[in-house]
Design a protein around this nucleic acid. Structure first.
Length: 323
DNA sequence: AAGACGGGGAA
DNA sequence: TTCCCAGTCTT
């Protein structure tokens, strides 16, 4: 924090009212905001190192951005890429997806994971068609009200599809900001209001710059300030007072982050059932029970939950199919 | 605040 | 094997 005092004066002119409001508050994060020089360094790094992703191209439709954001929820870029391209070709506008058969939507979702997202995306498309004249709303509040769109995604669409100044806080941005300003290796499990103001304090005031910033920090987290093995030697913040680096890259303090088991869970079984339904047409219940002959109750339980989620239906003859 | 919810590829 | 990914929703 003391290190900030030397740069504070020279960058005062560039600091925003938001930054000042945050820094003047008498809290432990008083000197939190990044310097204007640090922000410049990150933006310059982004110009050089940004990946060429289709949903970032100029002229991309808000719908294309929305689809990418939903697909990217908990799914890496490389796996989303081919599915997004095929998706946009098939359903280039919300109304197109709204009219599709859910079974086709789930098959097109393929193995992106968390297939409830695919269903929500279609519900989202229907809401856009019915409530917003078929056009993705630009208002973050309206976006947030759509199925499958939470705080992060609403902010991301506001920024990347409509060029608004929003506070985007995905896993990458949270990690970069927390490391740079607090020195902790990882953010806390829950996204607190304190952390939110920390992230907000870094967003530049000029709108165009804020959009670029959100994109740049996210990319920095994805390519350099990674969760596992951060490449600090390549980081534009290394010379601008990153606290994590200054403190010698400390280990994670506190409870180890929980890792959800997968092998042998209902989640895995649901995935196996969905994989079968996507490829082979209707499945006799007896066939699905063979997925785990030693634990029929588990298969039954998963079937019930899939039906409850709208991801599967039971036909009159007892076979199971996509909705 | 904590748990459910897929799937795959890198370390 | 373990970890983690442009999170959201429910309890």
């Amino acid at each position: 924090m003391a290190a900030q005092s030397t740069t504070a004066q020279s960058t005062t002119a560039q600091r925003t009212t938001t930054e000042r409001a945050t820094t003047e508050r008498a809290t432990s994060q008083r000197d939190a905001a990044l310097s204007g020089e640090a922000i410049d360094a990150v933006l310059a790094w982004y110009e050089e190192n940004a990946r060429d992703l289709p949903w970032r191209q100029a002229g991309i439709s808000p719908w294309g951005v929305l689809v990418s954001e939903i697909m990217l929820q908990q799914t890496p870029v490389v796996r989303v890429l081919p599915r997004w391209i095929a998706w946009m070709e098939r359903w280039p506008a919300p109304a197109d997806l709204a009219d599709a058969a859910p079974a086709d939507v789930l098959r097109a979702w393929d193995r992106l994971g968390y297939p409830r997202r695919a269903l929500r995306l279609q519900e989202c498309a229907r809401s856009i068609r019915d409530l917003h004249d078929g056009k993705v709303p630009s208002d973050p509040v309206a976006l947030r009200a759509l199925p499958g769109i939470g705080e992060y995604t609403a902010a991301a669409i506001g920024a990347f599809a409509f060029g608004r100044r929003t506070v985007v806080a995905d896993t990458n941005i949270r990690r970069v900001i927390v490391r740079a300003l607090t020195g902790a290796r990882f953010p806390a499990a829950s996204y607190t209001s304190a952390e939110r103001s920390l992230v907000a304090s870094c967003v530049p005031e000029p709108t165009a710059r804020s959009v670029r910033w959100n994109q740049a920090v996210m990319e920095l987290g994805a390519l350099v300030c990674t969760a596992r093995s951060p490449r600090c030697e390549q980081c534009p913040l290394a010379r601008h007072g990153c606290r994590f680096l200054a403190l010698g890259r400390p280990e994670h303090a506190g409870r180890p982050r929980k890792v959800q088991a997968f092998e042998g869970t209902d989640r895995q079984m649901r995935g196996r059932i969905m994989a079968r339904l996507r490829t082979g047409g209707p499945a006799p219940r007896d066939e699905l029970l063979l997925l785990d002959p030693a634990d029929a109750p588990r298969v039954e339980r998963c079937l019930v939950s899939l039906v409850a989620d709208g991801l599967a239906v039971v036909r009159d003859d007892g076979s199971v199919d996509l909705p």
